[in-house]
Amino acid sequence: MSDATNRFPLDSPSGTSALPAAISVAERASTPRMIANALRTAIVDGTLAPGAPLRQDAIARHFSVSAIPVREALRQLESEGWAKVEMHKGATVAPLSAEEAREIYEIRAALESLAIGLAIPAHTPASLKHAQALCKAASAETDPSLYVTRNEAFHLSLYEPAARPQLFEMIGTLHRRGERYLRLKFGLPSYKGESDREHVALLKAVRQGDVVTAQTLVTQHLLDTGELLYRFLCEHAGTAGASSQTRKPRVKRQRDTSGS
């Protein structure tokens, strides 16, 4: 078991950490948010592995704050699905879930199909040029942490002209919930290449103002990604539980019939 699952990484003898140092005075007004952002980043990049303890005392010492903003930050992470808090046991990083990964992408498919349909008539040459640049940046990215950021930026650039702030916020939240799952694609390089090609086709449909094709492409792109991550997590679950085992025959049939 790695250090990340045995103890809070800041306790490492090396003293190194992916988290920022103590928060400055100017940042203290938003201390819980800053702590939550730092912990979320550490979860996404793997510094804090699934099941790793999120000890309030260690976090408070690192950021030189009291326990109050740390508790608020952990409550925020729990509400977003990043942390699991149990009575008398404290907080830990939420486990990866095949079912959650698939559901996130199913919901994204519905919302982003709606968003892209609303956005296409409002796109301008400038917004399309911006989306093109973000598409290229995501395709060229080889760092998992940067890729998830650039992937999100590309997708959101397609929807922003819709001018639907609540819809945009919901989509952004789901992107963040799916960040650590999306990183798994880097263990499947051929699928990342396929995803990049789908981005190009999607952008082409948006440029052409083809709402129906764009909605079909974004829906299939997201559902396929969700199913890919679901299969990957199920296949790597081992003997984690009967639920995973009962789904494996279904997964195998899907794989046998894919690629046609």
Score class of each variant (00 low, 15 high):
174 L>M: 07
61 R>F: 04
40 R>G: 09
17 S>G: 11
150 R>A: 07
33 R>E: 07
176 R>T: 06
203 L>P: 09
3 D>C: 05
8 F>Q: 03
65 V>S: 05
146 L>N: 11
158 L>V: 02
87 M>I: 12
237 A>P: 09
232 F>P: 06
242 A>Y: 12
229 L>W: 07
144 P>T: 01
220 Q>S: 13
182 L>C: 04
100 E>A: 09
22 A>R: 15
16 T>V: 12
82 W>P: 01
192 K>A: 06
205 A>S: 12
197 R>W: 02
91 A>L: 08
254 Q>M: 15
8 F>I: 04
69 P>W: 10
152 E>S: 11
26 A>S: 12
243 S>E: 15
61 R>W: 04
133 A>S: 15
253 R>L: 15
156 L>I: 09
242 A>M: 14
236 H>V: 05
234 C>T: 12
139 S>A: 15
179 E>V: 00
254 Q>C: 12
112 E>L: 02
178 G>Y: 04
149 T>R: 13
22 A>I: 04
107 I>V: 15
187 G>D: 12
52 A>F: 04
214 A>R: 03
250 R>Y: 15
231 R>L: 13
183 R>H: 04
18 A>H: 09
254 Q>P: 04
137 A>S: 14
187 G>Q: 14
50 P>T: 00
205 A>Y: 05
252 K>S: 13
79 S>Q: 12
216 T>M: 12
259 G>A: 09
225 T>M: 14
132 Q>C: 05
165 P>C: 05
104 I>E: 00
248 K>V: 15
104 I>T: 04
222 L>Q: 10
64 S>I: 03
12 S>I: 09
98 A>N: 02
94 A>N: 08
227 E>D: 13
46 G>S: 03
209 G>W: 07
111 L>D: 03
127 S>K: 10
61 R>S: 11
125 P>I: 03
205 A>Q: 03
183 R>I: 13
158 L>A: 03
55 R>M: 07
215 Q>D: 00
208 Q>Y: 02
254 Q>H: 14
76 Q>S: 14
31 T>L: 15
238 G>E: 11
112 E>Y: 03
176 R>W: 01
252 K>Q: 14
44 V>Y: 01
173 T>H: 10
249 P>D: 08
68 I>M: 06
144 P>Q: 01
236 H>A: 04
189 P>W: 01
124 T>I: 08
207 R>Q: 14
181 Y>N: 06
101 A>P: 08
35 I>D: 08
10 L>Q: 09
181 Y>V: 06
75 R>F: 07
90 G>D: 06
40 R>F: 08
190 S>C: 06
49 A>Y: 00
99 E>P: 00
162 A>I: 06
79 S>E: 09
235 E>Q: 15
193 G>Q: 10
190 S>T: 11
30 S>W: 03
204 K>I: 00
53 P>D: 00
64 S>M: 09
233 L>S: 10
226 G>F: 12
73 A>Q: 06
99 E>Y: 08
186 F>I: 04
63 F>S: 00
170 M>K: 12
104 I>M: 05
22 A>W: 07
22 A>P: 10
165 P>R: 02
251 V>P: 02
150 R>F: 11
63 F>W: 02
48 L>P: 06
32 P>N: 07
222 L>D: 00
168 F>K: 06
219 T>G: 13
225 T>G: 12
128 L>R: 11
47 T>W: 05
253 R>P: 02
69 P>K: 08
175 H>D: 01
220 Q>E: 10
48 L>R: 03
104 I>S: 03
155 H>M: 10
